[in-house]
């Protein structure tokens, strides 16, 4: 399935909880904020927002990464634009 992941860079404090849970999807950049990756790759360069194709298992892990963020800076949407997290 296709999902959209967005990191609110104004909120992100670089706590790296998302990176610990889902390192193939999140990586801290030099501004100490989390970039969004597509399976450890960054096609078209670094980005705070990205649409990626994931399995159900990958989705659940990405949501766990988003849930782990102490400032709830990670937003996850399904293909239709419905917000999956924060719920």
């Amino acid at each position: 399935m296709k999902i959209k992941i967005k990191v609110d860079a104004d909120l992100c404090i670089g706590a790296a909880a998302c990176v610990v849970v889902a390192p193939e999807t999140f990586q801290l950049n030099n501004d100490n904020k989390a970039d969004v990756l597509d399976h450890s790759e960054a096609p078209n360069g670094p980005a705070y927002e990205r649409e990626i194709e994931v399995t159900e298992e990958e989705l659940q892990n990405i949501i766990l990464g988003a849930e782990s963020c102490p400032v709830l800076a990670v937003f996850v949407y399904d293909e239709a634009g419905k917000q999956l997290f924060p719920r």
Partner: peptide, 8 residues
């Protein structure tokens, strides 16, 4: 003493 450590 960190949020993330406590959570994990």
């Amino acid at each position: 003493g960190t949020w993330t450590a406590a959570q994990f």
